[in-house]
Amino acid sequence: MIQFFKRFTTSSLATIGLIVVLVMVFAAIFGPLIVPFDPNAQDIMQRLKPPMWQGSEGIHLLGTDALGRDIFSRVVIGARVSILVGVSAVVISSIVGVAFGLIAGYEDKYAGRVLMMLTDIQLAIPFMVLALAVAAVVGASLWNIIAILGLTNWVQYSRVVRAECLVLREREFIQAAHMMGISTLHILTRHLLPNVLSSVIVISSLLVAKMIIFESSLSFLGLGVPPITPTWGTMIAEGRNYIGNAWWVATIPGIAIFVTVVGVNLVGDRLRDLLDPRLRQVES
């Protein structure tokens, strides 16, 4: 583990990514303890003030929005939603996708074909349209958003896992397991799953970044997390009207999204380099 960490940090870009991710996770966990202002406290007198504004109750590091709320506090609290949505949605989609992929890759007669057909259908439907439709019908709430994102993004997992299983299935250790009368469930969980896990970790790390963007997009369109919770997407949507005279309102949460996504992607790329056996050989 320590050795893995050492190898991970030999790339300086990945180290920067890791620091960004750790800062965001820290903000998400300890956000309420470190913010200087209540993120929802309005102050009409202090609206649309630029960054480093000396207000009546202290310095607004990143300025204030149209209702006089402190942007720095809102960005920090917004990290909570982004990380929570990103991680939870990835957990849901990985469970669904890996299960589908394992079954489809192992047994490609009946169940496997049906599952792959489902995958193809899923791929054919524009994700945003589906997410908007579902959000409009079931209503927008934090957990609904997580469920929608989770249940519409498993395709990547199932395709990659299926492809790997098709290869693994022909390997002799799987045939040996057959010969020894190992049950299908145990072949899937004990023999196939551990061997596809590194790909799953890599996809997950890259998908977290995508989920954060999706959540922000949904929030921006007003179908995301309800407005009382500050999220980066809603903050951009609210700041859009003032982009001419108060650029920071929309730009700062935008930068937060950008930095987080780049950070997560850097970590994901490095994980792929380290965990993908084909790339690993080149490196060593």
């Binding site: 390997r171 040996a176 023999h191 551990p194």
Partner: peptide, 20 residues
């Protein structure tokens, strides 16, 4: 019934699960 008949394969590298 397969308890009575077992198999040993050609490639000793491929016939063991690397994660077990």
């Amino acid at each position: 019934q397969r308890r009575d008949i077992q198999m040993i394969f050609q490639d000793p590298f491929a016939s063991l699960n690397p994660r077990m």
